[in-house]
Design a protein around this nucleic acid. Structure first.
Ligand SMILES: [Mn+2]
Ligand SMILES: [Mn+2]
Ligand SMILES: [Zn+2]
Ligand SMILES: [Zn+2]
Lengths: 138, 138
DNA sequence: ATTTCAATGCAACAATGTTGCAAAATTTAT
DNA sequence: ATAAATTTTGCAACATTGTTGCATTGAAAT
């Protein structure tokens, strides 16, 4: 496990630090997406708030995690698939937010359908967020 | 115009106040969605920040405006169609964010497609946000 | 006009996010 | 292994965004 974390950091040319290892492990342990506040709680007083912000930002830039647009306009992050790399995310999967337990899921196997846009509009990214009840809450 | 605004407020059983009339007029004048900050700028120092927050909240509750999930996780609001009412929005249309000019559009005639969810997941709401270039910027 | 009720402004606060800079830790070079 | 170079971190200070309580003001009903 620790092995995998170090490898992931190395692969992305990031220096191996306690905070990066710990924050990455939280993502690997979690099945849903995490908000900044979640990580802050899980970490206790171990790291500074600012470090968490900067680490998340770095991970996004490197393509290790991606942000999820949410209906309640809070920022959440989830692990990217292997195919994502620095400056090039390809997250064409649907996200699901449970109204009951609040968990945000990456539905990696459900792809966002393309839609026909009005004349003159061109799409570079499509984000679909579905809310409702998850499999644990229904 | 002023007529239409007063009617809309009356229809929703809201008392007619300067701030509500003015804020509503900003939405009727704008072709895109507005953020809280936009309204604050347009209004100058006319109203307190808190009043704008409370007015937007009231309008959402009454079904006059709806919030739009954005990829940059900022809250934006746009006018609802007539069919929306208190506690019952039906916004099944796609939203478009222009990467160039930043405008957020309600694509009222493009409906969000349904997707097949994994077993146990049930959907109550689907939000699709498309980003790219709008008809003015392409 | 008077009463009743709702909306506003103000102040104080909480949550979230950003920046500059010195200290500490990690990586690279010797 | 040691030292130099580079990154990362923690802290402080600040900015932005959003919330709440309460007295004052304004709108609506009688
Ligand atoms: Mn995802
Ligand atoms: Mn809309
Ligand atoms: Zn759930
Ligand atoms: Zn545009």
């Amino acid at each position: 496990m620790n092995e995998r974390i170090v490898d992931l950091l190395k692969k992305n040319h990031l220096s191996i630090t306690d905070s990066r290892k710990k924050i990455l492990s939280h993502f690997l342990d979690s099945n849903g997406a995490l908000a900044h506040a979640d990580i802050e709680h899980k970490s206790g007083t171990e790291f500074d708030r600012v470090t968490i912000y900067r680490t998340l930002q770095t991970f996004v830039e490197k393509g290790i995690i991606h942000t999820i647009p949410t209906t309640d306009n809070s920022v959440r992050y989830a692990l990217c698939k292997d195919e994502c790399s620095a400056g090039h995310h390809h997250d064409d999967h649907v996200h699901f937010m449970c109204d009951e337990c609040g968990t945000t899921y990456c539905l990696d196997h459900v792809t966002v359908p393309k839609v026909e846009l009005p004349a003159g509009f061109t799409a570079t990214q499509n984000d679909l967020v579905v809310s409702g009840l998850c499999n644990k809450c229904s």
